[in-house]
């Protein structure tokens, strides 16, 4: 027991020293958040888990509270996802009339993509309400920006609209991919620690993975419909991608 206690103490000491002496080091590592999660789990869970298993060896696996970092990650992830799906829904909604007017054969495709985005938006709206996550304060700004973007690119023509879809879905797909990776890491870590993961996190991982695949499918549709032939292609996609990245950055925070 005393060995355990000293071990714990040294772990805690090293933990605080590490944070205190080298905060910049922690931040510069790209995967810092995952590592921090691991650190939190490994430095705090040893003793309580052991105690719990001593007290009731036949009970099911312990359910530990999520660490502050994990909760902040989920908080940000859900907020930014809702903002993204709001924008996507509006982009397709405003693109559809001009595009369908000039290219009636695209009507089913536009409707299909819009319906999927509306479904994603509904999913995240429910998740936000259920988990008491604050929606982004930039809601009206994104509403306006996304409507303008969708309408503007649709006026520029089919290729520009498809290039817009391509740029947006590339940024969003990559972003979802990062989230899935982090969630899988989180779940793996919990399993390795012998904790109960619970349906909530597994379902969330599944949902985000499914949505990511659907977004990437839209990307394929856009490329099939001559997105690459949009006229200032590099400029258009570059600007939209940069816009998406900054919007993601902002929505995670406010």
């Amino acid at each position: 027991m005393s060995i355990l206690a000293t071990q714990r103490r040294s772990l805690i000491v090293s933990h605080t020293l590490y944070d205190f002496l080298a905060p910049s080091l922690v931040q510069t590592i790209r995967t810092s958040r995952v590592r921090q999660c691991r650190r939190c789990l490994s430095s705090t869970s040893n003793a309580p888990a052991a105690v719990a298993s001593d007290a009731s060896p036949n009970s099911s696996k312990p359910k530990k509270p999520l660490s502050a970092i994990q909760r902040e990650f989920l908080n940000r992830a859900l907020r930014v996802n809702q903002a993204g799906e709001l924008a996507a829904t509006l982009i397709y909604a405003t693109q559809t009339p001009p595009i369908v007017n000039s290219h009636p054969h695209l009507r089913p495709l536009m409707k299909h993509m819009y319906d999927q985005e509306a479904g994603h938006f509904g999913t995240f709206n429910e998740l936000l309400a259920k988990h008491r996550v604050r929606p982004t304060a930039m809601y009206p700004v994104w509403t306006f920006a996304a409507s303008t973007l969708g309408w503007g690119t649709a006026i520029m023509g089919r290729e520009a609209a498809m290039a817009c879809t391509e740029a947006v879905e590339t940024a969003i797909g990559g972003h979802y991919d990062e989230q899935v990776r982090e969630l899988v890491n989180m779940v793996d870590e919990m399993e390795r620690q012998g904790e109960e993961v619970g349906e909530e996190l597994r379902e969330l991982t599944g949902t985000i993975r499914r949505i990511r695949d659907e977004e990437l499918e839209h990307l394929d549709h856009a490329v099939d419909n001559d997105a690459k032939e949009a006229k200032p292609y590099e400029l258009l996609t570059g600007v939209i991608k940069a816009g998406c990245k900054s919007a993601i950055w902002i929505s995670e925070r406010v």
Binding site: K63, K64, P65, L66, A68, R71, E72, L74, N75, L78, K130, H131, R132, V133, R134, E196, V197, G198, E199, E200, L201
Partner: peptide, 14 residues
């Protein structure tokens, strides 16, 4: 304690 993601499976400590 800042209000974060409200988990039902992993309720936040006190």
């Amino acid at each position: 304690s800042k209000r974060f993601y409200h988990s039902y499976d992993h309720p936040a400590p006190g």
